[in-house]
C-alpha cells in the first residue's frame, strides 16, 4: 500500500508522542464527531440560523486543521465568514456539500495512514 503524498497524522503524532494507540483513539473520536458537526451545519442552514452556522464552522475548522486538511479548513473559514456577514443562505448548502465530499476522500486517506502505523 502506497503511503499518501503528505501525512494527515503528523500533528496527531506530535500531540500524542507518536503513540499509535492514542492516535487511533483520537482518530476514532474525530470520525464520530465530525459527522455530527456536518449535520449541525446542514440543520442551521435549513433553520436559517447564522449564529449556529458560524459557531459550528468555527469549531470544526480547528479539528480539521489538526489533520492538515487545509482545503477542508478553507471551506469552513468561508462558511464562518459568510455566516458572520449574514450571506445568502443559498450559498451555504453547496459549500457544505463540497466539504462533505472532500471529507469522504480525506477520511479514506486518514484510514490508510492509520493502517500504516
Amino acid at each position: 500500500m502506497e503511503p499518501p503524498a503528505y501525512s494527515r497524522l503528523s500533528l496527531m503524532k506530535e500531540y500524542l508522542g507518536d503513540d499509535p494507540i492514542q492516535i487511533k483513539e483520537m482518530v476514532q473520536l474525530f470520525l464520530e464527531t465530525y459527522p455530527i458537526d456536518i449535520h449541525e451545519l446542514e440543520q442551521a442552514c435549513l433553520d436559517r440560523n447564522y449564529s449556529i452556522l458560524q459557531k459550528t464552522a468555527h469549531r470544526l475548522k480547528s479539528s480539521v486543521q489538526l489533520f492538515n486538511l487545509d482545503d477542508a479548513r478553507e471551506i469552513l473559514v468561508t462558511i464562518e465568514m459568510s455566516a458572520m456577514n449574514e450571506g445568502a443562505f443559498s450559498t451555504f448548502l453547496p459549500l457544505i456539500q463540497q466539504f462533505k465530499s472532500l471529507m469522504e476522500t480525506e477520511v479514506k486517506n486518514i484510514q490508510t495512514e492509520i493502517q500504516l502505523l
Binding site: 483520537m26 480547528s62 479539528s63
Partner: peptide, 16 residues
C-alpha cells in the same frame, strides 16, 4: 473547550 475532539487532544497532550 467546547470542541470534544480538540479538548480531548489537548488533555492527552498535556498529560504526556
Amino acid at each position: 473547550e467546547d470542541d470534544l475532539f480538540y479538548g480531548e487532544l489537548l488533555k492527552r497532550h498535556l498529560s504526556l
